[in-house]
Simulated scan of single mutants.
Amino acid sequence: MTSARRTSTLLGLAAASALALAGCAGTPAAGEDDSRISVVASTNVYGQIVEEIGGDLVDVTAIITNDTQDPHSFEASARDQLTVAEADLIVENGGGYDGFVDALIEANGSEAPVVTAVEFSHEWPENAGHDAEAEGEADAEHDEHGDHGHVEGFNEHVWYDPHTVVHVAEAVAAELGELSPDDAAAFTANAEAFAAEIEGLEGSLADIAAAHAGAQVFLTEPVPFYLIAAAELENVTPDAFSEAVEEGQDVPPATLLESLALLEDGDVRVVITNTQTAGVETAQIVGEADGRGIPSIAFSETLPEGQTYISWMQANIEALSGALSA
């Protein structure tokens, strides 16, 4: 987001939130339980993870809940501003993916603790390692609501990395335990149970690696990159192709020709698209793959209705395994 646009957004949010606060003050939502911890998550992916950890002890609100909303360009509303202002805990992706959360925090001056998922990725440039967190250094990092803009060369779609998600769940449990010490043991136990389910996902990815390590895949957008890496598959997509699609720009003609040549070579085993983005070049790649008998599958950025994080990731892994075995 440009500086001018960010400033405009913050001013607009401040004005809108003042009206919202005036109209809603003193009027609790129907059925609201004040004894529960109020958690706001940027997307329903993180919202569901929080539900797994907090159970009946938390009220979770996810700002983005469907696949028609692009977090990269999402414009927050006055209602979103109020929701964040009243949160006891905020969970975001970070890395420029959901920058609207940081804008909301800055606009309302929230002092609620923030769990920022990218900070738990081993690939995060500023990550000093999980050992530093054990020494208490992470608390300071998570309480600072910087701009968290896009970091060049870093893939921010870390919810597709099971290892990172385990550490996010642990951080959520720790923050919830600080907010409700009497329930800390329950939060920790839930996080441990969740981590055990993540181990199942990692086992499924290891099975793919055992059977297909080194197989070439083409990602029209870099969303599932971490899942592909965990399965020890090789992403051969030209950076210029996936970057253009992610930014909603035209793929350079030379890059498109290079990409089509990769499919013609016959080494690409599967094409993976993003259900939330589409374009002429993506359709052309899928059409070329179909014509050559190369399976194509689609992954999404938000949690499909009726799914948990675990069931969703397992379905994605099974789809990938099936495509590679076709």
Rank of each mutant, 00 (worst) to 15 (best):
G203T: 14
L303Y: 13
N235M: 02
A87I: 10
A30W: 07
E288N: 11
A191F: 01
L13C: 11
A174T: 13
V268N: 05
R6L: 12
T116N: 10
L205R: 12
E75H: 10
A298K: 12
D147G: 01
S17D: 14
N274F: 11
G23V: 10
A196V: 10
E288T: 15
S17F: 03
Y226I: 06
V251W: 08
E232P: 03
V84N: 02
V60S: 00
D250M: 12
D67V: 04
A171V: 03
A193H: 10
E51F: 02
V84C: 03
A215G: 12
V165R: 03
L263G: 12
G96D: 05
S259H: 08
E197M: 01
N155C: 04
V50F: 04
V271D: 11
P162S: 08
A211T: 02
D56A: 14
A87W: 12
D139F: 11
H167D: 11
V165T: 05
G214H: 07
P162T: 09
A323L: 08
T164N: 09
N155T: 03
Q69Y: 01
A41S: 09
V217R: 06
G31Q: 08
G55R: 02
A103L: 11
A18V: 08
A209E: 05
S42F: 00
T164I: 02
F74E: 01
I228V: 15
V114A: 03
E264C: 09
A240S: 14
S38N: 14
A29Y: 01
A128Q: 13
E111H: 13
D143Q: 14
A193F: 06
L179D: 03
P224F: 07
G146P: 05
R79N: 09
E75Y: 02
F225D: 06
A16G: 15
V280A: 15
L179Q: 07
Q48S: 05
Q69M: 02
S17K: 04
I310E: 00
I49L: 13
G146M: 01
E247G: 06
G149D: 15
F299N: 00
T237D: 11
L256Y: 12
E170V: 12
A173E: 02
A210C: 00
A171Y: 06
T302M: 11
Y46K: 00
D250A: 15
A169S: 12
N93C: 10
Q216F: 07
W159D: 06
E258F: 04
I53H: 02
V251N: 08
A195H: 07
G26H: 09
V118E: 04
G203Y: 07
G55K: 09
A231Y: 02
D33P: 07
D102V: 04
E288C: 04
A230G: 01
L256D: 07
T27C: 02
E32V: 12
M313E: 10
L320T: 04
Q69P: 01
V271N: 10
A174R: 09
L201A: 13
S77E: 03
A189Q: 14
I90F: 07
D88M: 05
L257Y: 03
